[in-house]
Each structure stands twice: as C-alpha cells, then as structure tokens.
C-alpha cells in the first residue's frame, strides 16, 4: 500500500493458504509436508532460518580472525622462509608497486568478507525491525551477497595453485599457512549463512503492516 515496495493489495501465497516449493516453485496447500514434485521439505516460513543465519555468520566471523592473524603463505626461497598474512601481503604488494594486484586481494580478502558480514547481519536484523530500508533494496542486497560470496575464494585459489605449482625444493617453495584453511572456512560459513537466510522474511514485515 503506502509502502512502494509492495503492490497494493497483492495477495501473498500464505494469505491464500498456499505454500510454494523453494526449489522447484510448485505451490501446495498449506500443511503439505513435502513437495509432490521434487520431494523437498516445504515450509511456508523457515522458523530456524534466522537462527542458522546467525550461527553460520558467527562461525564465519570466528574463522575470519585466525585467517587474518596467522600466515597465509609460507614462501621459502634459497632457504629463507617468509610468512605473510593477508594484510601483510597486501602491504608488501603495495610497496612493490603492484597496486592493481594489491587492490584485488584487498577487495577479495578484506572488503568483501567484512562487507558480507555486515550485510548479512543487517538483513537478519532488518527482518525484526521493519522499515530500515525498502524491501526491494534489501532483496537486491541479499542477491548480491549470495552472488558475490563465492568470489571471496579467489585468495584461497591463489594459495592452492601456488602451493601446488611452486615446489622447487631449495630454490622456491610455497606452502599454505593456517590462514588459508581458516579463510576458506570463513568464506564457506558465510556462504552457508547467506543461504540459510529466507528472503521471504524480508517481505513479511510489510504484510504485518498491511494487516
């Protein structure tokens, strides 16, 4: 109605006594336990969604701490071993003048994960207190978070490829550090967190307003 986010008087599935399958899109009467087409569990609203979002989010945040404190790469060239944390590597690249690469790594490893933490937390919070932003914007935010999540793995890929390729014994050896695993876990947890979020919750607050 007043809120431009929803079509005035639009009928929601729940109001119509229906539940849609989130996997294949088929609608069933409320109370149907499983989708008759694809067999996935049906729920009009996922009650545990927010719980799972928060749980995965916290797990991701916890994993993110060692990912930044411990070394990401163990590089040994001619017997000299260097350990680089993510931020340390960014600064080093910056010092060497590789601004582009430094920027990419900084975005993928620092800005994006932290942005995701903030975005997911915001989405989860905004479900409770309505009107923080328009529904469409929040829906868009959710989609972006889901899409961009996988790109955070770029750092992990780099480490994985380097440590697989650069095994020249004494001359140069690259080994993944503890941070690589932590970082991968952090990204995975955050992705799970984003996936656990039920976007239908974004719109529920508007319905409450309507009724």
């Amino acid at each position: 109605m007043e809120d431009a986010g929803t079509a005035p008087g639009a009928l929601t599935a729940r109001a119509a006594g229906l539940v849609a399958c989130t996997q294949c899109g088929r609608v069933h009467p409320l109370g149907t336990p499983q989708c008759r087409r694809c067999g996935s569990d049906l729920a009009s609203r996922d009650d545990t969604s927010l719980q799972r979002v928060w749980a995965w989010l916290f797990a991701g945040m916890i994993a993110y701490v060692p990912a930044n404190l411990s070394p990401m790469l163990l590089t040994s060239t001619f017997g000299r071993t260097r350990e680089n944390t993510i931020i340390g590597g960014v600064f080093e690249l910056f010092d060497h003048g590789s601004y582009g690469v430094a920027l990419v790594i900084f975005l993928a490893s620092v800005v994006v994960p932290i942005g995701k933490f903030i975005a997911i937390a915001y989405l989860a919070l905004s479900v409770r207190s309505r009107g923080l932003a328009r529904g469409h914007a929040r829906q868009r935010l959710y989609e972006v978070v889901e899409f961009i999540g996988r790109w955070s793995m770029i750092d992990v890929f780099v480490v994985a490829i380097l440590s697989a390729l650069v095994q020249l014994d004494f001359i140069a050896t690259v080994k993944p550090g503890v941070a690589a695993a932590s970082f991968a876990l952090s990204v995975a947890f955050t992705m799970l967190s984003a996936q656990a979020f039920d976007p239908r919750l974004i719109w529920d607050s508007y319905e409450v307003e309507e009724t």
């Binding site: 009650d47 545990t48 719980q51 799972r52 749980a55 995965w56 916290f58 797990a59 916890i62 994993a63 876990l185 947890f189 656990a196």
Partner: peptide, 14 residues
C-alpha cells in the same frame, strides 16, 4: 526447543 543444531558450528569454531 527451537534452538538449531547449527549453533554447534560457531561454538566448535570458537
């Protein structure tokens, strides 16, 4: 009662 088992994950991670 509604507490999801998923909470075990962050606890474990912590």
């Amino acid at each position: 009662r509604n507490l999801s088992f998923v909470w075990l994950v962050p606890i474990l991670a912590l």
